[in-house]
Design a protein around this nucleic acid. Structure first.
Length: 421
RNA sequence: GGAAGGAUGGGUGAGUUGGUUUAAACCAGCGGUUUGCUAAACCGCCGUACGUUUGAAAAGGCGUACCGAGGGUUCGAAUCCCUCUCCUUCCGCCA
């Protein structure tokens, strides 16, 4: 959400910066509606003042007059609320302004690779995809998931299930003991207002799973990422300066409809309706965002370093960033079967964009209430990390060597071999 | 699911026969006086949002709203009525 006062004073600059994003919101009428809204507020408040004075005077002769004023106020209020609603509708669907160092472009072709790390080991055999490996091991079962649930779900079994759990524990341990994050086990459902706070609603409702509790209950949604619930911890709060920075980590299932990706990544567990992800969220002073983004991204890549998986870091261009982000780094891991890098983490600074929606503030040095900076990043997506380990650590016979860093979490097991039948 | 009670400013907590409440008081916080230092005492300040206005700015002035949320009654609502949310206690059910 943007500050209407800023837009009012810097309309041309604002329009120009937003035009770099794939924005569909209509900006042209914004200032007119804003003006109308403010005029109506003024008219209304003038009348309210009159009414208040009459009431104070207790002059019975004026009581009738006061009643008439009430009718007018009601009319003005209706109009004003309509204008305000229009204004909010437009404002809430405008994406964040990209930071100045974000490359300009309309799609992923304009993203820039910043760094490539880790050794891609050449193998003497043809490397298999994770789903071939998993099915051969008898530990990834897509057919069973279709039977019980539907497409884009999977059963992870046996030692791979253990590895999935191990990855989660391994990552959380590093982020809590090494990187200063506070572990949280949050609700997996969020209210409509919470979803609005981080920017999933109202614009991206089609991507969300809605849950019915009671028939008259407020709308609830399965979280598409723990970012939603972790960031909203500070919703409607005024924090002390000494509270910051707040850093949260959670490992949760995430639920996404993947509505816009029919036919994409249909094979395997790259793109699922449900997947585990370790999420990092930072709440910081608003001028510390970019510094924190570097820190957070390093926390994410640290995991890949320790697992000795080859990866690269890219900066997303203006057109490829998420709705709430001002700057985003994607971390992509090497997948030998595809011979390309695939996204395994996305770290974004949202500046004050989300905190305005959530009304999350802190008292700065001057004791003024100012909006917090929020950041989120995956550290990392568990499902995709599992895939990356399987593919990069596969042996010719289809077994998986367990990375050293993971062995303490897997009873010091060294390799996963096919279940003998 | 049933019953009862509750929700007031950063915290505690008055006010609920509707009109000097422009929300008392205390605690915490900030500034000051006193003081060898600390403490204590005393004095002052101390909510948020929106709109508007003075000013180059810093900083003010004015107005409106806000006592869990939303409606209603009334000239006038923290106070009366309705709906909802959340919390507490008890009962039932339950991993």
């Amino acid at each position: 959400m943007h500050d209407i006062k800023y837009i009012r004073d810097n309309f041309e600059t604002f329009k120009k910066k937003i035009s770099n994003r794939n924005n569909t919101a209509k900006l042209d009428n914004l200032l007119n509606i804003d003006k109308e809204n403010r005029n109506l507020i003024q008219e209304k408040e003038t009348l309210e003042k009159q009414k208040k004075d009459i009431s104070k005077s207790k002059d019975e002769k004026m009581f009738q007059k006061s009643k008439e004023i009430s009718v007018k106020i009601k009319e003005l209020l209706d109009d004003q609320l309509k204008a305000k609603y229009q204004l909010d509708t437009i404002l809430s669907s405008i994406p964040n302004i990209p930071n100045d160092d974000v490359p300009i472009g309309s799609d992923e072709k304009s993203n820039k690779v910043l760094e490539t790390k880790g050794e891609i080991k050449s193998k003497s055999f043809k490397e298999k995809s994770h789903h071939e490996l998993g099915e051969k091991l008898g530990m990834l079962d897509f057919d069973l998931a279709s039977k019980t649930t539907g497409s884009r779900f999977v059963f992870v079994k046996d030692k791979l299930a253990l590895m999935e759990r191990a990855l989660s524990n391994f990552m959380i341990d590093i982020h809590t003991s090494n990187n200063g994050y506070n572990e949280i086990s949050p609700p997996l459902m969020a209210s409509e207002n919470t979803m609005f706070g981080t920017g999933q609603l109202p614009k991206f409702e089609n991507d969300q799973f809605e849950i019915k509790l009671d028939k008259n209950d407020e709308r609830k949604f399965l979280i598409p990422t723990a970012e939603v619930i972790l960031t909203n911890i500070v919703k409607n709060q005024i924090l002390k300066l000494s509270d910051l920075p707040l850093r949260f980590v959670a490992s949760t299932p995430c639920f996404r409809k993947e509505a816009g990706s029919y036919g994409k990544d249909t094979k395997g567990m790259i793109r699922q309706h449900q997947f585990y992800k370790v999420e990092l969220v930072s709440i910081v002073e608003n001028d510390h965002c970019l510094k924190e983004l570097e820190r957070m991204t390093n926390c994410a890549t640290m995991i890949l370093d320790r697992l000795k998986l080859p990866y690269r870091k890219i900066i997303l261009c203006t057109g490829d960033m998420g709705f709430s982000a001002e700057k985003t780094y994607d971390i992509e891991v090497w997948l030998p079967s595809e011979k390309k890098y695939r996204e395994i983490s996305s770290c974004s600074s949202c500046g004050t964009f989300q905190s305005r929606r959530m009304n999350s503030r802190y008292k700065n040095v001057k004791n003024e209430n100012v909006f917090t900076g929020t950041l989120n990043g995956s550290g990392l997506a568990i499902g995709r990390t599992l895939i990356a380990v399987m593919e990069n650590y596969q042996d010719e016979d289809g077994s998986i060597i367990i990375p050293d860093a993971l062995r303490p979490y897997m009873n010091n097991m060294e390799k996963i071999s096919p279940i003998k039948s």
